[in-house]
Write a protein that binds this DNA or RNA. Structure first.
Lengths: 256, 256
DNA sequence: CGATTGATTGACAAAGGTCAATGTGGGTGG
DNA sequence: CCACCCACATTGACCTTTGTCAATCAATCG
């Protein structure tokens, strides 16, 4: 398969750019904002940052002085136990807002690590309250994002607590495909899938080996294909039913 | 047709009280508010509601037109799979705010069920945005509560995904004790513990039988006592270490 | 070409789930 | 007051799923 043309077309501009030329905002997955709100968001923003694949966006034991919005790339939130066991709490892709929890909780919260190279828009933590004050609608939007994220963690908790291995894998494949598709990362039924099996195992609460065996089984059943880092769902209905996981079409999300 | 909902809606508000005489607000676990904010909260509030132990506060398949703050009693949030498997997402006690997710997410979110008799202060969903607009500080506080709740779900996800049975039980006992203690529900080292083993199993992602065996084991080890619906932690250090779960002293929370 | 990273597999062990029986204490109708 | 019921807790026997260990394979990279 040759997806290079598409892939290039999806490349974000690296480095700083003004919010008025934000490439995400044209995306129908996000709410439109007024020019005034956009100016306010830009004044709240302190810059951009790039993190290489595999590096930490936020260290787990080191709360971040910044909040971020993912502008391009995939990342994940995680927590570790002291003996090294790691649980991925959720995946982050363009439009996701990172770091709210640190603003409020005192102790440790979670780490964030880049899966691919990631571009972020950064915001100063101590300007969050002034932002709420200056424009309550943006505060409302941030609450929206927090509630949506909690809903995703709720779903992941049901997965880890109650689904068996095959159901977990089915659910995750559908979930990741849907989210990528939503922000326009799908090309002719394929989405870039940069995760390795360790990521999947850590997200699902399974061991690496069992994750591998379960993935192979579903693949042999012809439910999906995964080639060269691209994922295609062959039997969405079967995967949804197996995972007992049905997403409604999602409303446009705020983008900060 | 659901008779219950109508019946509940017709209940006279039990224990109605003005916010100025709120018994929770004296509690050091909660932030002090100005008289003006208090008036605003009261104008946002639409009444109170009582739910009997074991009844639904919010039906899982029936999004609520109300938001609530728990005023007294214990409840829990949960989600079910279509074959009946149930996962408890978290426990709710006085001061916890319920229903934010429904405001934003379209589809299903979660159900809420009372463990003990529960008293709630109710708020109209459609007045949430006006509240943000009228007093951004209260909006900021609501975001605080949302972020705190997400942090708790994150912890539960680590538990379900990565801790073994004994670690899960140890963690949950410490967690519930701490939270109850924090809002002043402890009496000489004991807290009321109204949960049965099915609740614990559903919260931890374990089977009922295995939960029982694990509880008995930790009890025989002398780590805790549970008598007549009251819990006492005998070896907090051992339970914390076993569960790899260390809470910092918590800051005062906003109370809406 | 060796080295490294990630995927794959089989053999085996362990944790946890399922089934079924029993215990226990508090209500409740008679 | 007593026999019965019911919800919940407890236990043993057994089974299934998942985890662990270790070897092999495949692709990529200096």
């Amino acid at each position: 398969m040759n997806f290079e043309i598409h892939f290039q077309a999806m490349q974000p501009p690296t480095g700083a750019h003004p919010c008025e030329r934000c490439l995400l905002r044209g995306n129908p997955a996000f709410l439109a904002v007024t020019a005034e709100d956009l100016r306010l968001i830009e004044s709240f923003r302190t810059g951009t940052r790039t993190v290489e694949a595999g590096r930490a966006v936020i260290e787990e034991d080191h709360p971040s002085p910044q909040l971020y919005t993912v502008y391009s790339g995939w990342a994940f939130r995680y927590k570790s136990l002291s003996d090294g066991r790691r649980q991925i709490l959720g995946f982050l892709l363009p439009g996701d807002f990172i770091g709210l929890q640190d603003e409020f909780a005192d102790g440790h919260t979670h780490g964030v690590e880049a899966v691919t190279d990631v571009t972020l828009c950064s915001f100063a933590r101590d300007r969050l309250w002034p932002l709420f004050h200056a424009q309550p609608k943006l505060g409302y939007h941030i609450t929206w994002l927090a509630a949506r994220e909690e809903k995703m963690v709720d779903d992941n908790l049901v997965t880890a607590g109650r689904r068996n291995a095959a159901e977990r894998v089915a659910m995750l494949l559908m979930h990741l495909y849907r989210r990528a598709e939503r922000v326009g990362m799908a090309r002719e039924g394929w989405v870039a899938f940069p995760f390795n099996q360790q990521h999947i195992a850590d997200a699902l609460g399974l061991s690496l080996v069992h994750t591998n065996k379960t993935l192979r089984r579903l693949q042999r059943l012809g439910l999906y294909r995964l080639e060269g880092g691209w994922l295609r769902i062959l039997e969405p209905h079967a995967l949804q039913t197996l995972g007992d996981y049905f997403e409604r079409p999602l409303q446009p999300a705020p983008l900060i």
